[in-house]
Design a binder for these strands. Structure first.
Lengths: 337, 337
DNA sequence: TTGAAAGCGCTAACAG
DNA sequence: CTGTTAGCGCTTTCAA
């Protein structure tokens, strides 16, 4: 197929020196005479020599590949995180191999297996929504294979992670609603075992308390993270005897599904119901009304996750730094009554 | 770091046979006695042996990596295509390494260089909007390195490609506008050297002719593919002495920027101006009014591109199949006067 | 039926 | 200052 790449041997043959001499010259080893070094480096440059990463990898037993497992790849949220990871990885001369769990535990487990076969050096992972057992990650951990979680993390495992401060952010949301005159604040949450669901619920409850509002169970509904189920959950809220006057959704999918459903029912945002999402910048501004939301620092999250990964490689066993990023509440039309 | 993987040598030592025997047994070579074969395979399974891809790669000189270069990675359009590529690649035991050109020719060239250094076996590429010279791709081609283009292709290079039938799709749009009573149909195009700009312009002009409308140059504006410039282009259309009563935008970015700007100017969609985009499913439905659009078969496009890639590897030099996918016009609120 | 040896591209310890 | 050699994990002649 492609024309063979130049090897050290090619250079050595051409210059009638040994391979090791060439190897040394190319890394400016002091043992080699300046003239020879120069001559070799010139030829290497002319012939466009680049070291064969396969050979290096075999020698050092490292593939320079990081396995990245995300619930899906086509959402802006993950795409943006991935691009943050990618940027840092590239700086370190690493590649990322992306696998999508499709929100399925089974596929997540398979992805770990497959990536392991490919000899990735470690993993950066956001759990699937189904993931409620962690054997596949515990195995990595006990084999000292670097593992970093982001966003949806496994709390029972002491590994590095990057998350957003969901408690604080959700408190802010609740207060913001309250300050805009909302009294019946509803929350559409996700699967209960996920840290993001739990944290945001805590913030929701604390926020209510701070505002002197009583928690009403009928204003807390949960759904899995599909558009369909989010629509169902919204509908459920809207069939309450007492309608909520504010809703916030756990993530993009939920927020936009809720928006559509509220409109479908002929209700006005924000006049009838104010709406807040946990989303990214882009989507929040393109919808109408534009969506007040906690915008995730997605790109940064990806960068930090990758940074943790490399720290993990350097520091080895037991490293488990946790990073919590602040998320800003950006106020747009959907809450301005 | 991670616990060493099992090698053939480990198995051989354990069973007191030679490495080559183990190697043969694992691939059911008839030379090895059935009993030995079974014994070896059992141990391999027990010890969870998996061949080292680095070693195989070095031996066969293949990395099983495909370089994928896209203008950006966070757009749903590309993310979806990438996931189509990924699916097919995985079936063939290949990985994809994604590089983003960020719409910059310079970065595109660098990406080719870097991926080449990583010894990717070939490329699947969507040109950056700046790309108007093709040396970096011609070099690949003349070195017989597999190369496939999708969406934005290089027409002067005879390599396989997947595109959407832009002429046909744009004709449909124009006719659809006309049938809905629009007479002053405007088109916001992209950089003139891109095939997608050119094709869609052809369809636009032909469509006008078929409808018996005269082409008015003031209704054709171009922009680079940034939101900012798309906004400027829209504004330009809206300051014409004669306002258009229909606009279509080359792609997502343009369509949504146009939508925002039209609304900003206090004009109603579709009553004052009907709007159509070339976009994907998701975005078109989330905005208000929902956007009539030509929806790209993105996932399919990715799959086809990857299929072409593997055909290219099999067939070698000279293979240059071109695939043209049909895109459907999906009618939504933004054109229903 | 099995083993020994060479080689893929590279580095590094050891000799000269 | 430079060359020789062994070895990373694997396949594949060639020998036995």
């Amino acid at each position: 197929m492609s024309k063979r790449h130049i090897s050290l041997k090619d250079l050595a043959n051409e210059l009638k020196v040994s391979i090791s001499t060439v190897s040394r010259a190319l890394k400016n080893h002091p043992d080699i005479s300046p003239e020879l070094t120069l001559k070799i480096q010139k030829l290497a440059a002319d012939w466009n020599y680049t070291p064969n990463p396969l050979a290096m990898g075999l020698l050092r037993q490292q593939t320079k590949m990081i396995g990245v497992i995300v619930p899906d790849i086509v959402t802006h949220f993950y795409a943006s995180i991935i691009s943050g990871i990618e940027e840092v990885a590239k700086q370190h001369g690493y590649y990322i191999v992306i696998a999508s769990s499709n929100e399925s535990l089974q596929k997540e487990i398979e992805s770990v297996e497959n990536l392991l076969k490919s000899r990735v050096e470690g993993f950066i992972v956001c759990l699937s929504q189904e993931t409620n057992k962690y054997d596949h990650f515990e195995k990595l951990n006990s084999n000292e294979i670097p593992l970093v979680f982001f966003d949806r993390i496994c709390e029972s495992l002491d590994v590095p992670s990057v998350v957003v401060d969901g408690v604080e952010a959700t408190k802010k949301i609740t207060r913001h609603f309250y300050e805009n005159g909302c009294k019946r604040i509803a929350y559409i949450s996700g699967p209960e075992h996920l840290n993001i669901s739990k944290n945001r619920k805590v913030g929701y409850l604390e926020g209510l308390k701070e505002c002197g509002l009583k928690f009403d169970p009928q204003f807390l509904v949960t759904c899995n993270l599909s558009t369909k189920d989010a629509t169902r959950a919204t509908r459920q809220l809207l069939t309450n005897k007492i309608l909520p006057d504010a809703i916030f959704g756990l993530n993009d999918t939920i927020a936009f599904a809720a928006m559509k459903e509220i409109k479908n029912q002929g209700l006005k945002i924000p006049d009838d119901i104010a709406l807040v999402g946990f989303t990214d910048e882009f989507h929040s501004t393109v919808v109408e009304p534009s969506l007040t939301s906690v915008t995730h620092p997605t790109f940064k999250m990806g960068q930090e996750a990758a940074n943790l990964f490399f720290k993990c490689i350097r520091n080895g066993k037991g490293f488990s730094e946790k990073i919590e990023l602040k998320a800003d509440l950006i106020i747009r039309e959907s809450t301005l009554k």
